[in-house]
Design a protein around this nucleic acid. Structure first.
Length: 359
DNA sequence: TCTGGGGTCCTAGGACCC
DNA sequence: TCTGGGGTCCTAGGACCC
């Protein structure tokens, strides 16, 4: 008996994407521990973007300070981040996905996307996607298959590397129920701790939690949303509406903490120039500015300021510099970030663009 | 161990208005 | 003098993701 053709959500996730792209252009690195991060200098303040599976065997993972990673895997090859190369590779992967018959593609990042497809055999469709991506880009990917976005996304981990895994309402609790809440997309260390404070430690416990208690703890939107996550429920619609950026920002961490006002202002002006360039490329006016300051050792403050809608670079620049003036004097600065919020186009202003709560 | 850089979204609280 | 309730806007901060 053959299954009926019904809508499925596939979550396509490239395996060790950044490291894989680097190995493709340096074949001699195949099979070696490879770490990509920062400027490739482990003595600098930077973190790991991606580690190859060989490097992960030493306990190296994304987000880890490069210095620590180099200590854990002393023989690893450490490479600088080359964003344009990854963007180019990513574009090819996404184009391959869009070329699949019947596929609706929602890009989530450099190395992952949802694919909506109506089929009677999602595993076969997933295999054909993997073959097409491998043929065109020489990159391997894993595919999660689900009856909702959340289930497809969570399924991928079980298929890694190069495999497939299906999570539906039928097996969700059986597979995910005993796992810690932090395994869920959208539940990090802080939220999982707050959940634990209510006796909620596993996915199954979250799925059965009292919605009112969650709303009281996390607010009217996030409370119910976390419970939904625990159940794997939510939208099953892959949305291919093109992404529209809300704003652009640039930030930089200083290798040595800054104390001199002239140095700080110079750094700010440089970031402002980059942000203005990114904003100008969008052709939309600026409606707000922001400044992020990290005082040593690790205290982050943000300042935001709504402004009159404007295309004028000097105005935006002056508004940001006014925020820079509010930086506390006599404190060492570790990081400076500058941001500009842009007006959204009319057609994207309603709930057309995907949002987190849309899940 | 010591924590990047690009983003998005949500919440709380104060100001202000009716 | 003491003071409700609803709404909106803005700022600051927090959390999360890749």
């Amino acid at each position: 008996m053959s299954a009926a053709a019904i809508p499925w959500v596939l979550h396509v996730d490239l395996d060790q994407f950044i490291a894989a792209v680097e190995v493709l252009r340096r074949p001699e690195l195949a099979g070696k521990p490879v770490i990509v991060g920062g400027r490739g200098d482990p003595t600098e303040r930077a973190v790991v973007s991606t580690a190859s599976y060989e490097a992960r065997a030493f306990g190296v993972g994304s987000g880890m300070p490069l210095r620590i990673a180099a200590r854990k895997a002393p023989d690893a090859v450490i490479l600088p981040v080359d964003a344009p190369a990854y963007t180019a590779a990513s574009d090819e992967v996404m184009a391959t996905l869009r070329a699949q018959p019947g596929a609706v593609v929602q890009v989530l990042g450099w190395d992952e996307a949802f694919v909506g497809i109506t089929t009677e055999d999602p595993e076969a469709y997933a295999r054909s996607i993997q073959a097409a991506v491998l043929e065109r880009t020489r990159l391997h990917c894993s595919v999660g298959i689900g009856d909702t976005l959340v289930r497809a996304k969570n399924a991928t981990d079980f298929g890694k590397p190069q495999g497939r895994f299906r999570l539906t309402a039928e097996n969700w609790i059986e597979v995910m129920g005993a796992r810690p809440t932090q395994a869920l997309w959208g539940v990090g260390s802080k939220i999982s701790k707050r959940l634990a404070g209510h006796g909620i430690r596993t996915v199954a416990e979250l799925a059965a939690a009292d919605p009112d208690a969650l709303a009281a703890e996390f607010g009217p939107k996030m409370g119910p949303w976390y419970r939904q996550l625990g159940r794997g429920d939510g939208s099953a619609t892959v949305d291919d509406t093109p992404w529209v950026a809300r704003g652009h920002g640039r930030e930089t961490t200083f290798q040595q903490d800054l104390t001199d006002r002239a140095d700080i202002e110079r750094a700010a002006r440089e970031l402002i120039a980059q942000v203005l360039e990114a904003v100008a490329a969008e052709g939309r006016p600026v409606i707000g500015v922001g400044l992020k300051v990290r005082y040593a050792p690790f205290i982050t403050k943000t300042l935001v300021h709504k402004i009159e809608t404007t295309y004028d670079r000097d105005t935006v620049s002056a508004e940001i510099l006014a925020l820079v003036d509010r930086i506390e004097p006599d404190r060492a600065i570790r990081l400076l970030g500058v941001r500009a919020e842009m007006q959204m186009p009319d057609e994207a202003r309603d709930d057309h663009t995907p949002t987190r709560s849309g899940w």
